[in-house]
């Protein structure tokens, strides 16, 4: 303590060391830190059963005019124009992070349901949006193909199947009629005076009429 020398080598070394270390902080190349949620949280979201919504559940919610669902079609625009689910919004996967669409995805009011032809692209969109910590995201299990196979064109259960299968079938059949499918046995009522014309070809393939809606107008929210 009682040294008379003002700057001892030891002090000089320590001072230089601390300044070099602090200077190193300034000079370090800065990089963007990982944004978004931690991998553990992402994993727990990914294995959560809430991730998927079945076609039956979705059909039920559409038919009951559930206002809290927001359907998002992540296929490209050509496929979207060809056929899609009613009231859906088209956000192609390659434009998912476009700022114009952020208001649809990053909000807390709606249950966002992502879908594509199968679950594949919708799953990718789900992962991307989940990493950005967007809430209430779901994927339509099986996508439009599953929608077609279960809701639009339900398979009639065979006679040895349980009652629940029949209940499911009748629900799906009713749902398909809601979505515009016409069944021969339903149309051919003798006292029907409606202008419904039964399809000429009396095959069992139901005609698919998927109504197409324009993009939903929704205020862009969030984003900060």
């Amino acid at each position: 303590m009682s040294t008379n020398k003002l700057i001892t080598p030891r002090y000089l070394f320590l001072s230089a060391l601390i300044i070099v270390l602090a200077g190193g902080l300034v000079l370090l190349p800065k990089f963007e830190k990982q944004e978004g949620i931690a991998p553990e949280l992402l994993l727990s979201n990914a294995i959560s059963p809430e991730r998927y919504i079945s076609t039956d559940e979705l059909a039920d919610r559409i038919i009951s005019n559930d206002p809290s669902i927001l359907l998002i079609d992540v296929r490209d625009e050509a496929s979207f124009n060809e056929n899609t689910l009613p009231n859906s919004v088209n956000i192609p996967l390659d434009q998912l992070l476009n700022e114009d669409f952020e208001g649809y995805l990053d909000q807390a009011e709606y249950d966002v349901i992502l879908f594509s032809n199968d679950s594949f692209k919708a799953d990718q969109a789900w992962i991307l949006c989940n990493r950005l910590d967007y809430k209430n995201l779901h994927v339509l299990k099986g996508g439009i193909n599953e929608w077609f196979n279960t809701i639009i064109n339900p398979k009639k259960p065979s006679e040895n199947m349980p009652q629940t299968e029949y209940n499911l079938y009748s629900f799906r059949k009713a749902a398909s009629m809601y979505f515009g499918v016409m069944y021969v046995d339903q149309v051919k009522k003798p006292d029907s005076k409606k202008a419904y014309v039964a399809p000429k070809k009396t095959t069992t393939t139901p005609k698919v009429v998927v109504p197409k809606k324009k993009k939903k107008k929704m205020p862009v929210e969030g984003g900060c």
Partner: peptide, 28 residues
């Protein structure tokens, strides 16, 4: 923050030397 820490470090080291000068001038 990086420049702030660097500035704080420089101030600290300067303070160490200045106080050392003061300490030598003050009666033991």
């Amino acid at each position: 923050p990086y420049w702030f820490i660097f500035g704080l470090t420089v101030v600290a080291v300067l303070a160490f030397f200045v106080t050392d000068i003061i300490r030598r001038r003050v009666k033991k």
